[in-house]
């Protein structure tokens, strides 16, 4: 290696080191920082995010939407969905005894949601599923319903809507419903049955006939009675739920009077 060659190489090496330092300095000083300090800050979850699959509830009736048709269990590539059911001798309907998803093996592939013909399953936004004991990763029916309340909405009474062209699982809107939004929970969520005549307030996003009853609401001095009055006409459409709703509204009015 000649002297000129050596000098040239040294110059080129020094120049590339300087270039690297220049770029690093530019990144450090003049470029936006992208770090997200995770437990305190969180990235926004996109609407199609695939977290844990959860079960939806119909908030108007408090019934779970699952009909134990086993479509999701068949579609699952890793067989993590366990469904046990029996037939109700009176109504001849399937009653779900156990619906469990083993999240230690689930690979979040969305096939169960696509297979569901009743729009009952949805991939939730929850992604922090760490458990100390791996046995706790088996999510039972109650857990899935509880997690799924956030995506549940009050369904229109009447015949079940057909599966639309744009599938419902594509955009699962967050309604942020809680257990208090359910009209009549029949102990599915593992809490004691609600007192007779209990009539919770519907949150504004579930109130569908608000405009009609606005005049009634202004006459009524107590605002708590407003959703009860609203729930009446829909409850009449469902004969099973009608007596409870009516009883609830009368109780509330009596209680409000004195």
């Amino acid at each position: 290696m000649g002297v000129t060659n050596f000098v040239g190489e040294a110059w080129r090496t020094g120049k590339s080191i300087a270039t690297g330092l220049k770029i690093t300095f530019r990144e450090m000083m003049f470029r936006p920082a992208i770090t997200v300090f995770y437990p305190d800050q969180r990235d926004e979850v996109p609407p199609w995010f695939r977290g844990i699959p959860v079960l939806k509830t119909d908030l108007r009736t408090g019934e779970y939407k699952c009909t134990s048709c086993m479509q999701c269990a068949q579609a699952c590539p890793v067989n993590v969905i366990t469904i046990e059911w029996h037939q109700d001798p009176e109504t001849r309907k399937k009653v779900c005894d156990r619906f469990a998803i083993d999240m230690s093996r689930c690979m979040l592939c969305n096939f169960c949601v696509e297979a569901c013909p009743f729009d009952s399953l949805v991939m939730g936004y929850d992604y922090e599923l760490c458990k100390v004991d791996p046995e706790n990763l088996v999510f039972e029916f109650e857990d899935l319903l509880r997690l799924g309340l956030k995506y549940s909405s009050a369904e229109e009474p009447g015949p079940k809507a057909k599966r639309s062209e744009t599938p419902p699982w594509v955009f699962h809107g967050l309604t942020n419903a809680t257990e208090d939004d359910i009209q009549d929970v029949r102990g599915y969520l593992g809490r004691p049955p609600l007192p007779k005549g209990y009539e919770p307030e519907l949150k504004p996003q579930f109130q569908q006939k608000q405009a009609e009853d606005e005049t009634a609401a202004t006459v009524e001095p107590e605002p708590a009675a407003k959703p009860a009055a609203e729930a009446k006409p829909e409850a009449e459409a469902k004969p099973a739920a009608a007596p409870a709703a009516q009883a609830g509204s009368t109780d509330r009015e009596e209680a409000g009077q004195p």
Partner: peptide
């Protein structure tokens, strides 16, 4: 993630 719903494993 916005298009498919997953970050690494898309299906």
């Amino acid at each position: 993630e916005r298009i498919t719903g997953g970050r690494m494993l898309y299906n």
